[in-house]
Design a protein around this nucleic acid. Structure first.
Lengths: 189, 189
DNA sequence: ACGATGACAATACAGGTGCAATGTAAACTG
DNA sequence: CAGTTTACATTGCACCTGTATTGTCATCGT
């Protein structure tokens, strides 16, 4: 298979393997050879598509980001502002295997971002976008007497925190959802 | 210096070095030799006090846990329930260098816990204790019409999330405090 | 037809890793 | 005073790490 190869496709194949490994071993514990093995290719091929390990990491992060964004946009297709916000935030919580894996990856990236500032930038941009959306919905609903920006920060932080604590098995999924719903009820007074 | 050495003291010395490194390099990126170097001792000494790397990690986690607990208890000395809750939760937010370091370490441990289930247990026990305290305070205040347990989960998750997002530089510290205060105002209706 | 190029594969390398084995010297126990 | 124990230090081992180098084809433009 010589010349014509879809670069994006190959890179996504490798990034998928990386994320599968990151979910169980953490990001820093993942090596190029492991990624190659998980993807069923040679380490030479990984090097061909990512000149360095960091390049692979940043690509994987941006890929994960756009996937979550796509799912959120699908969930935010229609409904009242309150339904929209709830739908989007529920996409972040690790309530099924897919999202549990994504959350593991997200946590691994967060820990990695604490070490690699370049990664941090990407994370922040994604989060800012989502926060903006939520704040706009709150404003549209004229919800309560809270500052929408503050409430959006709070909601995002709440869901992030719930997700983290769910991952470490601190309580049941239904408790997390109940806590989110209680908060939504509080905000949409 | 032959026989009499305070084991706990030595272990804390090493665990301190570990946490300093974890804050900047992540937990998984820390090696025995690095810890030894940071502590200014030989790798043989590290091995003498921790037979394995995992043993060192779990000890460091329990140490960090008891330190945060001590600081929280000091902050919860007296006051109205609302003041108590605010004081304790503020101790978790990374608002100065000490707590920023602790938060980095906490995040590193969280990511590490996703890989090592033994670590997960310790984290959960610490969090459960704090959640119980908060729930008790809410009940004592007869706050609002919320389920105190649910509200406690929400508050802890909120603060954890705020802390994480502060670490990744997503907004200013004052915004995080404002978000927490807004939530407290909402709960203590 | 033929270099050039893209898509890999294989291997080599210098360095780091956790851990085990061994050595050494000082203090306590008898 | 002998012997055991404690507290380290040194060294070695097998393995894994990221990356550079080199090789091998198949295809494309000309």
């Amino acid at each position: 298979m010589p010349r014509r190869v879809d670069h994006r496709e190959r890179r996504e194949l490798l990034a998928d393997a990386l994320m599968r490994l990151a979910a169980t071993h953490g990001l820093q514990g993942v090596s190029l050879r492991q990624v190659a093995g998980e993807a069923g290719v040679s380490t030479g091929m990984v090097q061909h598509y990512f000149r360095t390990k960091d390049e692979m990491m940043t690509f994987a992060l941006s890929m994960a980001g756009s996937r979550i964004r796509a799912r959120s946009e699908a969930a935010a297709a229609s409904g009242t502002p309150r339904e929209l916000v709830r739908g989007v935030l529920l996409q972040i919580l690790p309530l099924d295997d897919t999202r549990r894996l994504e959350s593991h990856v997200g946590l691994a990236f967060l820990a990695y971002a604490a070490v690699k500032p370049a990664i941090r930038e990407g994370l922040r941009a994604d989060a800012d976008e989502l926060r903006g959306f939520i704040a706009r919905q709150l404003r549209a609903a004229g919800a309560g007497n809270l500052d929408p920006d503050l409430a959006a920060i709070g909601l995002m932080a709440l869901v992030d925190g719930l997700g983290m604590q769910l991952l470490s098995g601190q309580y049941a999924e239904q408790d997390a959802v109940a806590a989110l719903d209680a908060q939504l009820a509080l905000i949409f007074s």
